[in-house]
Design a binder for these strands. Structure first.
Length: 311
DNA sequence: TGACAGGGGGTGT
DNA sequence: ACACCCCCTGTC
């Protein structure tokens, strides 16, 4: 028997301070829509998630849509401010969305209306980079599988006494490894976490970061353009991964990641057939303005919804 | 139930 | 343009 978040006593449910209510599909899109890869749905409109060394459950009240949260008792005190930063670190999502140019953009207006209250998470910078280094040509389910294995095999236990397991348990017991921890993991063991060719990128990035203490923290504090340029020097990090890291892990809402979904969406909805990702990214930043990344997340959610409905 | 293609939210050469 | 790596999903 090992100590796990599930066997520990959990704190009483506490009401999320915001008065806002969230629809179930918006909560799902926020937590499990490709920004983060360590949330799992539980029965009854509940979610269990890990970020940094924190584990929390979120519960959506089916009556009014408001949120409550709980954490393992020993971790609850530190979880409170961490959750606030994680969920609300970028400011009131509805107020932010209202500043987007939806009044002159009918498609954007439809997306905002379809996912009211969708927000950009503010995740720990280093593990955001790790998640998106895993993401190349992978779908969310597969990325979640990779990071679960990385965490369970190579990350520190969330609660004292938990042993590392060869296979991921049904609930998370370990946090993601830090970059210094990853630097000590042989590439072959990374491959064992289903990373495939991404294992080399992660091993090389880990070695670089280990040799350059403070590099990642400095990068996080730089202005957007300079931070992106620096991230793109890491092996396995191109424009898309750099933009995702800055958007979801550093609150740089001007970052406009262009993946194949956004490429398709912009081609179909904005007449940009044949444009390259770099051209679409430039268009996005100009058209959507300083919160282009938030607009991107709405477009992305809408496009995935349309694909599911069409299938 | 089990095998078998096909394709995948990107980067580097 | 194409390789990289290999797991998921749908299908027979």
């Amino acid at each position: 028997m090992s100590s796990s978040p599930d066997s520990a006593a959990w704190s009483a449910w506490r009401r999320w301070p915001e008065e806002m209510s969230v629809a179930p599909h918006v909560l799902a899109e926020t937590l499990d829509g490709g920004q983060s890869f360590r949330w799992q749905r539980e029965p009854g409109d509940r979610w269990l998630g890990v970020f940094g060394g924190h584990v929390v459950r979120l519960r959506r009240d089916p009556a009014d849509g408001t949120l409550s949260w709980s954490a393992p008792a020993p971790l609850a005190a530190s979880a409170a401010p961490a959750l606030t930063r994680y969920l609300d670190g970028n400011g009131d999502p509805r107020a932010l969305a209202d500043t987007l140019p939806w009044r002159s953009d009918a498609h954007l207006a439809r997306c905002l209306a379809a996912f009211p209250g969708l927000r950009i998470l503010r995740q720990p910078f280093g593990e955001t980079l790790l998640g998106f280094l895993c993401s190349a040509t992978k779908q969310i389910v597969q990325i979640k599988q990779m990071v679960a294995l990385l965490a369970e095999r190579h990350g520190a236990p969330l609660l004292p006494g938990a042993a590392s397991a060869a296979r991921p348990p049904p609930f998370p017991t370990h946090r993601l490894p830090t970059w210094p921890e990853l630097a000590a993991v042989p590439e072959a063991e990374l491959r064992g976490c289903l990373l495939g060719f991404r294992a080399r990128y992660i091993a090389q990035t880990a070695r670089f970061l280990a040799a350059h203490p403070g590099w990642l923290e400095e990068t996080e504090s730089l202005p957007y353009a300079a931070a992106k340029e620096r991230l793109c020097t890491l092996p396995g990090v191109g424009e898309k991964v750099a933009d995702c890291t800055l958007l979801f892990g550093a609150g740089r809402l001007e970052a406009f990641p262009v993946d194949v979904w956004i490429l398709r969406a912009m081609a179909a909805r904005y007449g940009l057939q044949g444009w390259t990702p770099a051209q679409v990214a430039h268009f996005g930043r100009v058209h959507f303005g300083p919160l282009a990344g938030l607009a991107q997340q709405y477009l992305f959610a809408c496009e995935r919804q349309a694909a599911r409905a069409g299938a």
